[in-house]
């Protein structure tokens, strides 16, 4: 298991946002996290990525305990994420967003730069090439020089995924990657996620669009009121009586 979540709780004052959440994400899986608004999905992602410390419980990434660690440590262990409300570097170009996103991998030391050594230029060319490859993957190569703030909504979502990829993570967390997107943009994101999974990356994603989740994910975990209702394959989950009642409505189950 790449990621093991065990008994995670989080209280905000008197509100228990997460209550003993536990499930595992397999290496190479596209794992969906669904549930009604307020179920605790984003809180869980914040706990996993170190932005919100948990009140209790354990998280293991490749066997190593990471709960309560600051975000930059968790990132260094191979986890990258996007945000429900897009958090791009709006004043930088698309390419520069990725260059900044290479923080953990590209050393870019000061001394060769100060001396103007050719090694600094070669390193820069290499990482620039890496960034351009990722922009091509998400279909934004033609936008490389554009300011992030000049992109359309769908493009910004994809750029945020691209920036997360720039750190070459083993686990990618996506918080509503296709929220509010038109169907054709949605397909582009789905294609990107599939490509990444085929290349061996593990993806945990929150999404409300059921077609997207059911079509893409190999496993799904359902949260409600901060607890896991069930985890399983898309078919199992969509026919689970509690899931149908809490979230999906009866019409979805085709089993």
């Amino acid at each position: 298991m790449l990621l093991e979540i065990d008994g995670i709780s989080r209280d905000f004052g008197g509100v228990r946002a997460l209550d003993g959440v536990g499930f595992s994400v397999e290496q190479g899986a596209i794992h969906g996290l669904i549930g009604p608004n307020g179920a605790g999905k984003t809180t869980l992602l914040n706990v996993l990525s170190g932005i919100t410390p948990p009140s209790g419980g354990r998280v293991r990434l490749e066997g190593r305990e990471i709960q309560g660690q600051p975000p930059h440590r968790v990132a260094a262990l191979g986890m990258a994420r996007t945000f429900q409300h897009i958090r791009l570097f709006a004043g930088l170009s698309c390419l520069e967003n990725l260059i900044a996103g290479q923080h953990l991998k590209a050393k870019r030391p000061l001394l060769p730069r100060l001396l103007g050594l050719p090694a600094a230029r070669r390193e820069e060319e290499y990482w620039r090439g890496q960034a351009m490859d990722i922009l091509e993957l998400v279909g934004l190569k033609a936008r490389a020089g554009f300011l992030a703030s000049a992109l359309s909504y769908g493009e910004r979502r994809r750029l945020e995924i691209a920036r997360a990829l720039a750190s070459q993570p083993r686990l990618l967390l996506l918080d509503e990657p296709v929220a509010g997107m038109r169907p054709e943009s949605l397909d582009k994101v789905a294609a990107v996620v599939r490509t990444l999974a085929q290349a061996g990356m593990t993806i945990l994603l929150i999404e409300h669009n059921m077609n997207f989740v059911m079509g893409l994910c190999s496993r799904i975990t359902v949260l409600n009121f901060g607890r896991v209702i069930t985890s399983g394959s898309p078919a199992e989950v969509s026919c689970h009586p509690e899931v149908v009642e809490a979230y999906l409505g009866a019409a979805v189950c085709h089993a």
Binding site: S49, G50, I51, P70, P71, H72, A75, A76, A80, R81, F83, R87, L88, F89, A90, G91, L92, E96, I99, A100, G101, H103, L104, A106, K107, R108, P109, L110, R113, E124, R163, A164, A166, S167
Partner: peptide
């Protein structure tokens, strides 16, 4: 254009995102 320079810019643009990508 060094690692530190990019980290400065990342923090200026969005602190939370900067931390999540390892700064």
């Amino acid at each position: 254009r060094t690692r530190l320079g990019w980290a400065f810019q990342s923090i200026r643009e969005d602190e939370t995102a900067a931390a999540a990508m390892g700064v």
